[in-house]
Design a protein around this nucleic acid. Structure first.
Lengths: 216, 216
DNA sequence: GCATTGCAAAGTGCATACAGATTGATCGAA
DNA sequence: TTCGATCAATCTGTATGCACTTTGCAATGC
């Protein structure tokens, strides 16, 4: 647990992590007193943390009800994946146009370095590389607000695509798709980069064998 | 002041409104005790409201500092306008593809009805129409997450484009641009709708004679 | 005259206490 | 037996109080 920042910040990070990593499943109740005891603080910072998590969309809050880990409907999950594809496409397009020489080189290196992870079938490590790869893409767009939106959306989707790299052949396919994006960006071909990024997310969306709660 | 919801919700709405309408200017301090006195509540709900406003990006918070109305840099403002253009383009594209017959008809009627406001030079009323018009576009995309993002971005931009319709000729120009978007959507021409929406926002961005705080 | 240290005022961060809402169980009546 | 009402337990919403941090000013030393 990171010890920087205020109590509330620490709690937000800790709870968000539990949700994103799947330690707390959608629908789980977040009781204020239990959390207060667990983190050895009073209810006041707990409440503020829950409010912040609510604003982030990670937990749902209703008056006089416990906060619960957000349980998105199938329809909403779909809308998030679609939005994610659009956002990644924007980032890829802008990255193709705006990345500095250094950024392009770093992206390519990051990508090439992941080849051995694919061959080794190192799911965990590849997953870390994947995060890094996409983050570079988001930063390369040189648009802070887009960066915030795509980062937030990514966090909210995290619980629903945890196991994606467990699917057979997914690693190699992901690597190949990344390659297409990298090539387009190196060529400064914005349109191609955008399309490659869009279909990359589309496929992740399909690969995420997750079931949201059927429509409410 | 709307009386629904909890105390905190009411405060969030009230304070957000003050910021969005320009009653509180960027950089203004939001003292907890003053707000508590002003709304006749204790500091507890005030603090939660401020945290929520912070998550919304309307106020900036630092530990042991008063919250202040967000004072975006010129660069960040630019990134928000660019993001807004991209988001509106997405909505227009998706609207062109997905709007129901009723939605298309309603959009067109809303647009046509605004012609007389242009001739009358009714800035206030046209501004209300403009909000309604764009909201229809956002809803027509039939993507809840995109709707949330575009709505939030719009709220954060509000303080910076308040006076846009005061500029001479801006009403007529806005009407014309809306017309281009409507035509494309009625034709289900997604690409044209997207482009029209993108350049519409671009022009609003230029028209917003605002000065953010020069880069930090 | 200027810099530095000490102090007081003001404000935030968190804990505790109390009031109101919700839920579930138990008891009584049809 | 089943439905309904009442009450207790539990939890959230808000108020209040205390501790710590920040900041501005003033006094002291150089």
């Amino acid at each position: 647990m990171i010890r920087t920042g205020t109590t509330v910040e620490q709690m937000v990070r800790a709870i968000a992590d539990m949700i994103v990593t799947g330690e707390m499943l959608p629908g789980a109740k977040l009781d204020e007193v239990s959390l207060a005891v667990r983190f050895d603080v009073s209810r006041t910072p707990v409440r503020e943390a829950l409010r912040e998590l609510g604003a982030m969309g990670l937990v749902a809050r209703e008056p006089n009800r416990s906060a619960v880990v957000t349980n998105v409907t199938e329809a909403y999950l779909h809308s998030m994946f679609e939005a994610m594809a659009e956002l990644e496409a924007i980032c890829a397009r802008l990255s193709a146009e705006r990345m500095t020489v250094d950024e392009r080189r770093a992206l390519e290196l990051e990508h090439r370095g992941s080849m051995r992870l694919v061959h080794a079938g190192a799911e965990e490590e590849y997953s870390a590389h994947n995060t890094e790869f996409h983050t570079r893409l988001y930063r390369g767009a040189h648009n802070d607000h887009v960066f915030e939106m795509v980062t937030q959306t990514r966090a909210r989707l995290a619980p629903f695509r945890r196991a994606q790299f467990r699917l057979p052949g997914r690693l190699a396919k992901s690597y190949e798709e990344h390659g297409r994006i990298v090539t387009a960006i190196m060529r400064a071909d914005a349109a191609a980069a955008g399309q490659a990024a869009y279909s990359h997310v589309e496929i992740v969306s399909d690969a995420s064998a997750v079931f949201a709660t059927p429509g409410e």
